[in-house]
C-alpha cells in the first residue's frame, strides 16, 4: 500500500485541523468564564475549519470546487467575529465580570 504525497499532505493538514478543534472543544469545557470560552470557540472557527478546508482543497485537486471550498473560510472570516463580539457584548452588558486570575 503506497500513499502518494498529496494524500499524505492532506492527511497531515487534516490531523492539524482536528487537533485545533479538539483543543478548542477542551477549552470550551475547561476555561473559567464566558469570555474565555469565546476564545476557544474562535479557535475552532478559524484554525480548525481553515486547516480542514485547506486539506480538502489539496486532496480534491485544483478545480472550480476548490474555489467553492475557499468560500467557506472566507465567510467564516466575516461571520465568526460578529458572533463572538455579539456574545461578548451581551455578557458584558448584562453585568458579567471576567474572572481575573487563574482559578487554581
Amino acid at each position: 500500500m503506497s500513499y502518494n504525497y498529496i494524500e499524505l499532505i492532506s492527511l497531515v493538514l487534516l490531523a492539524i485541523g482536528c487537533f485545533f478543534i479538539l483543543s478548542g472543544s477542551l477549552g470550551l469545557i475547561k476555561l473559567p468564564d464566558v469570555f474565555s470560552r469565546i476564545h476557544a470557540a474562535g479557535l475552532i472557527d478559524t484554525l480548525g475549519s481553515g486547516f480542514i478546508v485547506l486539506a480538502l482543497i489539496i486532496y480534491s485537486g485544483f478545480s472550480l470546487l476548490s474555489f467553492k471550498l475557499l468560500l467557506i473560510p472566507l465567510f467564516l472570516i466575516f461571520t465568526s467575529p460578529v458572533t463572538g463580539h455579539a456574545i461578548a457584548l451581551f455578557a458584558h452588558e448584562s453585568g458579567y465580570k471576567p474572572r481575573g486570575k487563574n482559578k487554581k
Binding site: A40, G42, L47, S80, P81, H85, L89
Partner: peptide, 15 residues
C-alpha cells in the same frame, strides 16, 4: 480592526 482582534484567537473585542 475590531474584527481582526476578535478573529485572532485569544483576544475578543467586547465593547
Amino acid at each position: 480592526y475590531a474584527n481582526a482582534i476578535t478573529l485572532t484567537p485569544g483576544t475578543v473585542t467586547i465593547e
